[in-house]
């Protein structure tokens, strides 16, 4: 059985995807913690699951629908007010495309 240990560059890739800038010592601690979680998950690999379908839902319900009716949410301003920054009714965020 192979152990898929998390490497430092994996962490950096995830941070990059999430637009986050980690501190070096925190990364080391994260790797340590996360690898112990992975080790725990590895234990599950000991079970033979060859003929068992992957479980995505546990409650067994299917076909839960709503009719196509519009109803406006009444507390829109409240949601917008918890955004870090606004401009009019727009949400203002740091620029997301790299500049040419």
């Amino acid at each position: 059985m192979t152990t898929n240990k998390l490497q430092k560059n994996d962490i950096f890739k995830i941070f990059k995807l999430s637009r986050m800038h980690p501190e070096e010592e925190k990364v080391n601690k994260l790797i340590e913690e996360f690898n112990s979680i992975l080790e725990l998950a590895e234990k599950l690999n000991e079970v033979d699951t060859k003929n068992i379908d992957a479980t995505s839902h546990v409650h067994g319900a299917t076909n839960i629908f709503r009719e196509d009716k519009r109803s406006d949410f009444t507390a829109k301003e409240k949601i917008l007010s918890i955004m870090p920054e606004n401009s009019g009714t727009y949400i203002k965020v740091p620029i997301v495309i790299e500049q040419e």
Binding site: K92, V93, P94, Q99
Partner: peptide, 10 residues
Amino acid sequence: HDARTNSSLV
């Protein structure tokens, strides 16, 4: 995207 203010409006 607004390069002037370095921000994006969503």
